[in-house]
Design a protein around this nucleic acid. Structure first.
Lengths: 329, 329
DNA sequence: CTATAACTTTTTATCGATATAAGTTGTTGT
DNA sequence: ACAACAACTTATATCGATAAAAAGTTATAG
């Protein structure tokens, strides 16, 4: 717990010499080097990264802001970015906002004060205060999950419109006539907005103008269950459900089973995300694979590029998906 | 992006005065205060936390080392600790080791260099190099998931022996005669060692000395499936399986179903952890609920105590569990 | 109207490291 | 033997903030 100073005194040399030994620089006599190294061991010297960061004006710190660490998209994304940053020698500063919009903004500022080199933000919405906070940031910020390109914010998103379109086409091909959509908060332009929009486009393209039911809920199995129960009561002719996430879809299947209908037969069900839950439930859930680990890696790489290459252009990366056909459609 | 110095020049005062204004200290004339505040806004001053940390010898940083962020135990635990640390004004530095033992040790050192105030370590093993690294740490370290009390390391663990005992008793009560255990790496004293040990104790207590089969694998569904397939071939009379984790148990049920036996009827299955997967699979998985979010919170509180209270005594906290009876036993 | 208290502000030192400039040896060439 | 140069080492300034000491003002009392 002693600084350079202590080592220097102990070895009978100056701080500069000790520093040179530590950083393995040229121009140190073998005998002094040895003397210094002995002193370092003797007083248990450990470099102080805080001081180094201040002197070098470089922290090797990256901030990550997430709405809920334990969600599939975030925990897998985190793992992907951790991998890239580990290789790049960066450390991760993590904040869990629990979907508190003010905390999101607060952490952008706090991370700026800590002089992180960049920030990755898992976003579930994109309103004016947030956009302003992002614009005020001194360091680059990459958005994950929402499209910020309209506001010139670098973003990594999944192809949510096309996934909605694909889902719609698949349900129509399977003979669906009355399709319902169960989404999340209306603020969520990606998961709620875009996926629904794609579904609408599919129906238009197929010239099928059945009344579409758009229900809003949360990212949970329970919410999917409740929304579906309500929907089934109000709209008994329903024969297909596109759910914004797999968890919602699993809740939906539970509700369907409860009224003695068979998911995948009486009512087709599609989810999005390829959550492991969909593999083990009965019937297994047909869905679309979103490569969350990859999105984490890609966002990390994009951020690194923005950090290293000051005038890298702001870009948007749209990740594709794979259809996974299982029992529910 | 300018420092105190710039603000001071702009306002025509000294750095100290600016510092006093920023920290809202007494003894600044109202007129100067105003002048300084205007200057701060004008040049977009933002405090440099790195410099502050160096001067105050306090970082408000906590290091967290995990073997796999995306696992249930870790992501929920992370969420619990994030909650506590958020309230305590601490920031989280996160490392994902991917079960690489050297990385674990490397990060203990790197976090010490960064002058974190303490470290939380999700452990899957506890060998000599790791114990040494922990002992060399300048800052307190709390172990999560493994019992380090023998080596005087503060630990939060689940009652793994008793869970094994409970599982054994339950299987015996259900009429099981030939019980198999599917564990993980033999290095893992908690998940593999203790849970097995508890099972053995139950069998001894019930004076049932059937040959116990102890198989080693990984934390995955696939591994559970493979191990069970092998086990069923070698030991056809098997009528009960205690699995070290829920994922393993789900793989086991798949293997059982594949040979046209019915999990929960022909072969009883028990898991540990109460993973959501166990709720949706068929038959639903009987298991034991481990409060991972709570373990995260408790470990955070224990660490905070060790940080604030220099001579807080090293303690071990054993968290209990609840039995969850579902379809598989 | 000065002495002293009370208030405000500046100066200086410090946290721990490192880059640069300046200083001290020692060696070689002529 | 003395200049020129190489090889080491030390001294000083800096990163950006803050605490403590010193200095400068203003206000109040005697």
């Amino acid at each position: 717990m002693s600084g350079l100073h202590t080592v220097a005194k102990l070895a009978g040399v100056s701080k500069s010499t000790v520093s040179r030994v530590i950083n393995n620089e040229y121009g140190v006599k073998a005998s002094t080097k040895e003397k210094v190294q002995k002193a370092i061991v003797e007083c248990g010297y450990m470099a102080n990264q805080v001081a180094r960061d201040l002197k070098s004006q470089k922290t090797n710190l990256i901030g990550v802001i997430a709405p809920r660490i334990s969600s599939n998209a975030v925990s897998l994304g985190l793992e992907g970015m951790a991998d890239i940053f580990e290789q790049a020698g960066k450390h991760l500063l993590l904040a869990n906002t629990l979907q508190n919009n003010e905390k999101e903004i607060e952490y952008i500022m706090r991370f700026n004060q800590r002089r992180v080199e960049g920030i990755l933000l898992f976003a579930t919405h994109l309103d004016t205060p947030l956009i302003e906070a992002i614009n005020h940031s001194t360091v680059p910020i990459v958005l994950i999950g929402q499209d910020g390109s309209l506001f010139n914010i670098p973003s990594i998103i999944h192809d949510d419109i096309r996934v909605g379109f694909s889902a719609g086409m698949r349900l129509i091909e399977a003979g669906a006539k009355n399709i319902g959509f169960i989404g999340v908060h209306s603020q969520d332009a990606a998961v709620d907005g875009a996926r629904y929009q794609g579904l609408v486009q599919a129906l238009q393209h197929a010239k099928q103008v059945a009344p579409l039911f758009h229900s809003h809920g949360e990212f949970t199995i329970e919410s999917g269950y409740q929304q579906t129960k309500k929907l089934l009561m109000e709209w008994p002719q329903l024969d297909a459900l596109f759910c914004a996430t797999d968890r919602i879809a699993i809740g939906a299947m539970r509700a369907i089973t409860e009224i003695n209908k068979v998911p995948g037969k009486d009512i087709k069900v599609l989810g999005v995300g390829n959550d492991e839950l969909g593999q083990v439930c009965t019937p297994s859930l047909s869905t679309f694979n979103y490569a969350f680990t990859l999105s984490g890696k890609k966002s990390a790489l994009m951020l690194l590029d923005l950090i290293e290459n000051k005038n890298a252009e702001v870009s948007k990366l749209v990740l594709s998906f794979d259809a996974i056909e299982r029992g529910s459609c």
